[in-house]
Design a protein around this nucleic acid. Sequence first.
DNA 1: CTCTATATGTCAGTTTCCTTACATGTCACA
DNA 2: TGTGACATGTAAGGAAACTGACATATAGAG
Lengths: 141, 141
Amino acid sequence: MVNTPPQVGYMLKQAQSLLHFRMEEALRPLQLTVSQYSCLHHLRREPGISAAALARATFVTRQSMNAMLQQLIDRDLVARPSRAESGRALPALLTDAGADALEAAEKLVDGVEHRMLEGLSGNESAALARGLAACVGALEG
Amino acid sequence: MVNTPPQVGYMLKQAQSLLHFRMEEALRPLQLTVSQYSCLHHLRREPGISAAALARATFVTRQSMNAMLQQLIDRDLVARPSRAESGRALPALLTDAGADALEAAEKLVDGVEHRMLEGLSGNESAALARGLAACVGALEG
DNA sequence: CTCTATATGTCAGTTTCCTTACATGTCACA
DNA sequence: TGTGACATGTAAGGAAACTGACATATAGAG
């Protein structure tokens, strides 16, 4: 019998689900969801990005992202002009409060990620990252 | 600067999200969602399992699982007694049609998983699986 | 210049899943 | 015996995501 890879897809789901749960747990004191954290994180990486591009980066639809951005705007964590200078895309930016919240959230999330990887050596972590990247590359396009 | 592991959590999310999308795509002709496939798959592995146990295995709440089971029962893919012989748990079982649907779905899903792993050697696949298992172990409990 | 393709934002409706809460059944143990 | 802890099923309501549809703005082809 062939050495069947023991359900890599299932293990992927299991790991992602558990990581999401732990992150949600860690972020609860800050009143942030994982999706909101991911949104803020990408906003810092690419200030002025459009909601549609942000949606693609965080794996939700642009409708969901616009709703989420509105929530973050209501909490003064994100700012967005009401009209575009050019084109339709409205650039989104972190406010100072948003940057502060992100920094606090990042500490908590980094703790979870560190815990997740603590049983792996540097080589093993790198191999895991490479494997995941290969999976993504093979499935997209 | 420390060799920061490049966002293993994010890559996990990315890979899982893309895999889910491809599976959904592959299963669409059979009118099955990924969650439903996962449910049928576990039902074959553990016939007579309760909805609550099934829910834990597929990472949803038992309320969601009971709703999903009802759908599958309505389509004659799953059968379940109306009363328990002992205890409260109602054992769920695949019908013949359910087993057939699962077999067809499995071919499609295996194709997706194979595609996902095609760029990886046997050693690399095994390393990926071990890495994921280590992550799960570190995050649970 | 005109027209098509593409990308963005938005509205409406639906689905799916979750949270909270409660009733029921079994088991361990005092 | 009976009582408390635990697991299961179920109901009701809400939150978050998706799909489908449409208007708008830009760029490019003809």
